[in-house]
Structures are given as structure tokens and as C-alpha cells.
Design a protein around this nucleic acid. Structure first.
Lengths: 140, 140
DNA sequence: TTGTAAATGCAACAAAGTTGCGTTTATTGT
DNA sequence: ACAATAAACGCAACTTTGTTGCATTTACAA
């Protein structure tokens, strides 16, 4: 884990008025270093042995980070949340891709997921959740 | 529960080479009578007291019905599968709408969810999962 | 340095869904 | 109508993900 990501993580956390704890730094640094959306468990595995985090703490830290819009949660059909850092492009809603073989999830930033869709009368549009499924480059 | 739906359910099950059991009839009849995609729990609640089904049996029956393409599963962000009967229009992939207030899910048949989307090089498109979120007519 | 709220860790819980296995039952053939 | 049999079923136990309550620790600021 690059020390850079840890520094950036620390600054981001502090800037959002949260306590800069080892757990939050470690989690956010992992997500900053990762280009895919990863699960709670994958985060746990990437944590250094020197920083064993309780499952609950991890969930709560992720919840806090999502609240502060530093990361976002991605739904999936396997009932497992995946988390991804909010880079500039991710501020708005966007689509995700999930590989049907290796279950890897990436963000598709160039897919505008913001326009409204035709709904039955009386329904009000808020947002869409779009997951494109297929095979990733590794599994093709 | 209309006797009609039970008859139709029975015929559908038989036609697909499955045993016509009380459980399967009850479940499929409920789904035939329902226009929304509902959860396993909602199905359980709608079952008559005279037909108490084990949770496992319910899951296995739903699995079988989905295998035979009589129903389809709908993913949701609350980690709970919802089930919906496959009418003619539902044979192909289509989008879903979920109310952010009452969590009700309906199918949007007129939203073509079949065209392929631009993916990174080396990725292969298979299908998309599209959920439009907002407020339903009741919650508006 | 110390007070305090925020963050953490532990234990216990909840809900969705799955697996193994013995029992029941819908169907098929006689 | 009846017996054989594979398909369904029901029960118990388990897994996984995620949540809640509460006591303890710790980052931070006064």
C-alpha cells in the first residue's frame, strides 16, 4: 500500500470533519488504490495484519465514508455491497459492469445514468441503477 | 385467490414436466395474480393457512419455476430477491421500477434492455440489469 | 494534560438463502 | 386399483451479510 494513498486518505477524512483513525485511513487508502468496486470482505483481506479491524468497525467506517460521499455503494445480484471511491467522475450517478464469471465490478463512467425514463402515469423518476453484465477482459 | 389462477398454474406446471403439487400451484397462482414483483416473504404471507409451506420448499419451488422460465428473479438493493411471473412480454430482458418509499417493484416492459452498451476493450456484453428508482403513484 | 464525543470492539442478533437427509407423495406402469 | 419410484417436501442445521446495544478506548481540542 503506497504511503501516498494513506496521506490522501488522511487529508480527505480530516477535510470532512471526521476523526483520522488508523482504520479509516487504511480502508480509504485501499479503496483509493483499487480501480474496481470491492466487497467488504475483499477490503478485509487487503488490510495489513498490523491493522486487524472488527467487521462492525469496517461496516461503520464504510457507512461513514459513503455518507460523506467519499465512496459509494454498488448493488449486485449476489446480495453483497461493493464499495468504490468517488473520484471526480463518480460524483454523479453512473453505470456499473459486472463480470458474470469472476464477479468483478467496475464503474462505467461514460454511461450517463441520469436522464429520466418513461414511467407509468403518476410515477416520479428519481434515479436509475444500471448494471451491464458480461465477461471482463480477463475472462473473455 | 381465484380458482382460475390455480387452474392456469396447474396447467403451466404440468406442461413443463413438473409434478403438480399443492405448493407449486399455490405459489404460481399467487404470482399470476400479482402484478408486482414480490419477495419470498410476501409470497409466504399470501399463502392460505391451509397450505403452510416450508421456507426451503418455497425457495426450491421458486428456483424450479425460474428454471422453467415461468417466473424470473429481480435483484434489488435490499439484498432480497423478488419474483415475477413471465408473461409474454417478460420473455425478453426488461427493466424494473422500484419505489424508494414503499419498496414496491414493477416491471417496465416497454424499456428495451437488450441493446449492447459501450464497454472497455476486451469486454464482452451479455445483458443489462436496469432498475429505475423513484416514487410510485401511491407514494407520490 | 485532561475532558469529551467520536470511534472501536465484542457479543448477540436478524434475515436471506443453502445443504443434507430422511419422509412423503404425484405419477407411471401394470 | 395398486405398487414402485423418482420427484417434492420438511426439518434441522448452517453460512453469509449485515445490524444493534453497550462498554471501552482514543483522537482531538480546550
Amino acid at each position: 500500500m503506497s504511503i501516498d494513498f494513506r496521506n490522501i486518505a488522511g487529508e480527505l477524512i480530516q477535510h470532512h470533519g471526521g476523526r483520522v483513525t488508523a482504520g479509516r485511513i487504511g480502508i480509504l487508502a485501499i479503496l483509493l488504490a483499487e480501480q474496481h468496486a470491492i466487497t467488504h470482505r475483499e477490503i478485509e483481506q487487503r488490510l495489513p495484519e498490523s491493522l486487524p479491524l472488527d467487521r462492525v468497525t469496517l461496516y461503520r467506517a464504510l457507512e461513514w465514508l459513503a455518507e460523506k460521499n467519499l465512496i459509494h455503494k454498488v448493488t449486485s445480484d449476489d446480495r453483497v455491497w461493493r464499495y468504490h471511491v468517488n473520484r471526480e467522475l463518480h460524483a454523479h450517478h453512473h453505470a456499473h459492469f459486472k463480470c458474470t464469471r469472476c464477479a468483478q465490478v467496475i464503474c462505467l463512467d461514460d454511461l450517463p445514468a441520469e436522464r429520466s425514463w418513461p414511467l407509468p402515469a403518476g410515477y416520479r423518476f428519481q434515479e436509475i441503477e444500471l448494471t451491464v453484465k458480461g465477461l471482463c477482459a480477463d475472462c473473455c
